[in-house]
């Protein structure tokens, strides 16, 4: 089936199989920031935005994004770089495998929550797992980035 969508502000037409998952489609078109690390929809590494909402690209059929606007971290270079610098300054990036999905969630949170508390930040990001950092550095980086205490 052919789908038409906007990917990082560029209109594209892609042929996809009926049971193809979006993470695989995106990676096959060179969007390699999108990672897959679990089979159970619980690590958040594949997080992208669909019409501005953060979603798990590993769990969404590609046919379902026909007509939609997809954003991956490749489409947000400035915002991603700004936050990634703070993240590494806080020692919150080690292997970095979780970073693209994590940054997409943080940027989505910035758009959705106004002056979030620490509890709200932690809760919003429960769906992004990181095997290396222990999360405290990430929390410091987010607070610095959002300018919240």
């Amino acid at each position: 089936m052919q789908i038409k969508l906007t990917i990082n502000d560029k209109a594209v037409k892609w042929d996809v199989a009926n049971d193809e998952l979006l993470a695989d489609t995106l990676r096959s078109h060179g969007l390699l920031s999108v990672k897959k690390a679990c089979d159970t929809s619980c690590c958040g590494l594949c997080t992208i935005w669909i019409d501005g909402k953060s979603m798990l690209s590993c769990s969404i059929l590609s046919v379902r994004v026909h007509g939609k606007k997809i954003t991956t971290i490749e489409g947000l270079p400035q915002e991603a770089e700004e936050f990634a610098r703070i993240l590494s300054a806080e020692g919150a990036e080690q292997c970095g495998f979780c970073s693209p999905g994590f940054i997409m969630s943080v940027l989505a949170m910035k758009n959705e929550l106004v002056n979030p508390t620490e509890e709200e930040i932690i809760h919003y990001l429960t769906g992004n797992l990181c095997r290396c950092t222990g999360y405290m550095g990430q929390l410091r980086a987010i607070k610095t980035y959002l300018g919240v205490a």
């Binding site: 929809s41 619980c42 958040g44 997080t47 909402k53 953060s54 979603m55 798990l56 769990s59 969404i60 969630s105 989505a108 949170m109 809760h123 919003y124 990001l125 429960t126 769906g127 992004n128």
Partner: peptide, 12 residues
């Protein structure tokens, strides 16, 4: 529902 996996999961 707030503790079911994460926001991006519940969006789907």
């Amino acid at each position: 529902v707030r503790d079911i996996i994460g926001v991006q999961f519940r969006n789907g």
